[in-house]
Design a protein around this nucleic acid. Structure first.
Length: 486
RNA sequence: CGGGGUGUGGCGCAGUUGGUAGCGCGCUGUGUUUGGGACGCAGAGGUCCCGGGUUCGAGUCCCGGCACCCCGACCA
C-alpha cells in the first residue's frame, strides 16, 4: 500500500507534485534525466500537451494566424539590438560558440524567445500598410538557463507557442494583445477548467522590452499563483530596433506596432496543481488523453469468456460515440489495483464490467472528481454511452466549479490595512488591494511578504473610483492582486 | 548562487568497532487468485555517485569533485 501512495497534498505540496508527475507517467523522473534542468516528457504527458496545442492552434487559426518556423539559433547581435530585452534575458542565455569543430565568428544564442529573429524577418517582409496585419505563430522549444527547475513549471528547455504580430497602429496592436489574452482565458477556463484572472502586469513584472504585458493568473491547490499565459503589446520597441516599417496610405514611412504572446508546457503544471488530489491527477475531460477506461473483472477463464465480450462491446460503442477510450485487459492485476492506477493517471471516467453486471445487464460507472463509492453508479448497459457523455460534461464543469470555489475562498480584498495585507499574502492567500504600481512600493511588499503583484485585474471591482495605495497611502486608481507565485 | 539534506540491484531502504553486500516492492517463470492496491514456489538482477588517499583489506575512515532533493535570491 505505502509503495503506491503519494505524499498527501496537505502535508507537503511540493513533494506531492514531484511524486505525482512521475507516478502518473507524465515525465521521466528528474534524477534519471541526464540533462540538468531538462525534462523527458513521456507519451502520456505529451498527449496532454498535444491536447493543449490542438485547442490553442484551432483558436489561432480561427482568428487569422498562420504558423511558421524560425531558426533555433539567433545571432547574439540580434538580442543586443533591444536594450531592455537583452538585459532581461542575458542571465539565462545558452550560447553556442563552436560549430563544425571551429569557433564561430559570432556566437549564436539558443532562442530564449524569438522576438528578435522574427522582428528581423518582419522588417524584410513588410513594406506597405497592405502587408498588415502580419499574424504569425510558432510552435517551438526554447531554452532559458534556470537555476532551479521543476517539471513543467520551470525547466531549462520547454515547449511553447509564441505568437508574433505586426500592425499599422497602436490600437490595432492593443486589440490583438487583448484578443489573444481572451483566447488564452477562454482556453484555460473552458478546456483546462482553470478559472484564470485576466490582468495587466506592473511595470516591474513586465516582459523585457514590452510596452505592456498582460497575463492570465491561476491559483494552484496550495494557494500560490501561476502565470499560465502572457500577451504583450510591444509598442514600437522592437519595430524601431529591427526597423520594421511600412508605407502608409499617404506614402509616409511608419514604424509598425508589434505584439507577442505565449503559452508553454507550464500549462500542464497548472492543470496538475489546480485539480490534482491525494489519489493523483484529475484531468479535465476535454484535455484528458484517455477520457474513460473500461475495466473488465473476472475470476477465471469461464467468467472472462462472458465478461470480456460485453466489455469490448461497451468499449467499441464508447469509441464510436467519440470518447477517447482505453480498455484495461491486463491480466494478473486485481481490479482494485487498476482503479488506483487509473485514478493516479487522472482518467475522468471509469466503467467497470464484472460477472454480476453481465448477469444484470448493467455496468458500474465511477467519476474521478468524486472520490470513493459516492462517485460510483450502476447503470443499464444500453445507457452507458449516454451516461458517460453526460458525466464527462459534468466532470468538466465540476472541476471548474471546485477550482473556482477554492480560488474565491482564498481571495481577500484589503483596503488601507497594511498589516492585514501582509498577513494574508504571507499566509499564502491572495490579496486584492489599491496599488500605485511604483517600483519602491512593490519592492517593499516583496521584502515584507516574499511576494510581488500578480496583476491589475482587467475587471476592476470599483472601476472609475480610487483608493489608498496599500503602501504609500496615496490615491491609486487601480487594485492589484498580490500573492506568492511559482 | 548561498544554507541544509541525500547518493548502495529498476524503486524505497538497511548495512554495527573497516573483513568483500542484504531486505521490501517491482521484474522473469509458474500455479492459485481477481467487485477498491492478492498469494505461494522458483529465479534474474550490484562499477555500493565519481576520482584520489589511508589500510593487508574501504559501502564504511580522510581529501577533492559531481548529481539530485528541500529552503532562500533570479525567472514562461
Amino acid at each position: 500500500m505505502s509503495d503506491y501512495a503519494v505524499t498527501p497534498r496537505s502535508e507537503d505540496f511540493s513533494a506531492w507534485y514531484n511524486e505525482i508527475v512521475v507516478k502518473s507517467d507524465l515525465v521521466d523522473s528528474p534524477e534519471r534525466t541526464p540533462v540538468r534542468g531538462c525534462m523527458i516528457i513521456k507519451p502520456y504527458g505529451y498527449e496532454i500537451w498535444e491536447g493543449i496545442r490542438n485547442g490553442l492552434d484551432q483558436r489561432f487559426k480561427a482568428t487569422g494566424h498562420q504558423n511558421a518556423y524560425f531558426p533555433l539559433f539567433i545571432p547574439m547581435s540580434f538580442l543586443q539590438k533591444e536594450a531592455d530585452h537583452v538585459e532581461g534575458f542575458a542571465p539565462e542565455l545558452a550560447v553556442v560558440t563552436h560549430g563544425g569543430g571551429k569557433e564561430l565568428e559570432e556566437p549564436y544564442v539558443v532562442r530564449p524567445t524569438s522576438e528578435t529573429i522574427i522582428g528581423d524577418a518582419m522588417s524584410r517582409w513588410i513594406q506597405s500598410y497592405r502587408d498588415l496585419p502580419l499574424l504569425l505563430n510558432q510552435w517551438a522549444n526554447v531554452v532559458r538557463w534556470e537555476k532551479r527547475t521543476r517539471p513543467f513549471l520551470r525547466t531549462s528547455e520547454f515547449l511553447w507557442q509564441e505568437g508574433h504580430t505586426a500592425h499599422a497602429t497602436f490600437d490595432d496592436a492593443q486589440a490583438e494583445t487583448m484578443q489573444m489574452l481572451d483566447i488564452y482565458a477562454d482556453f484555460a477556463i473552458n478546456e483546462a477548467a482553470i478559472p484564470v484572472i485576466k490582468g495587466q502586469k506592473s511595470d516591474q513584472e513586465r516582459f523585457a522590452g514590452a510596452h505592456a504585458s498582460y497575463t492570465i493568473e491561476a491559483m494552484m491547490g496550495d494557494g500560490k499563483a501561476l502565470q499560465a499565459g502572457t500577451s504583450h503589446n510591444l509598442g514600437q520597441n522592437f519595430a524601431k530596433a529591427f526597423d520594421i516599417t511600412y508605407t502608409d496610405v499617404n506614402n509616409e514611412p511608419q514604424h509598425c506596432w508589434t505584439t507577442s504572446w505565449g503559452v508553454s508546457t507550464r500549462m500542464i503544471g497548472a492543470i496538475i496543481m489546480a485539480h490534482g488530489d491525494d489519489k493523483g491527477l484529475r484531468l479535465p475531460p476535454r484535455l484528458a488523453p484517455i477520457q474513460a477506461v473500461v475495466v473488465p473483472i473476472w475470476k477465471n477463464e469461464s467468467e472472462a469468456a462472458v465478461v470480456l465480450p460485453v466489455a469490448q462491446e461497451l468499449a467499441a460503442k464508447l469509441r464510436e460515440a467519440g470518447v477517447r477510450l482505453h480498455i484495461d485487459t491486463r491480466e494478473g492485476l486485481s481490479p482494485g489495483f487498476k482503479y488506483n492506477d487509473w485514478e493516479m493517471r487522472g482518467v475522468p471516467m471509469r466503467v467497470e464490467v464484472g460477472p454480476k453486471d453481465v448477469q444484470n445487464g448493467t455496468a458500474a460507472i465511477a467519476r474521478r472528481d468524486i472520490p470513493g463509492r459516492e462517485g460510483k453508479q450502476f447503470v443499464e448497459q444500453s445507457l452507458v454511452v449516454a451516461r458517460v457523455l453526460t458525466l464527462l460534461d459534468e466532470v468538466q464543469a465540476g472541476l471548474l466549479q471546485q477550482a473556482t470555489a477554492f480560488r474565491d475562498s482564498h481571495l481577500h480584498e484589503v483596503v488601507g490595512d497594511y498589516d492585514r495585507f501582509t498577513e494574508i499574502v504571507r499566509g499564502g492567500e491572495w490579496a486584492l488591494t489599491w496599488f500605485s504600481g511604483e517600483a519602491e512600493a512593490e519592492a517593499k511588499i516583496k521584502e515584507d511578504c516574499q511576494a510581488v503583484s500578480r496583476c491589475f485585474p482587467l475587471e476592476q471591482p470599483y472601476a472609475g473610483q480610487s483608493g489608498p495605495c496599500i503602501v504609500t497611502g496615496k490615491p491609486a486608481t487601480r487594485m492589484a492582486y498580490f500573492a506568492k507565485a511559482y
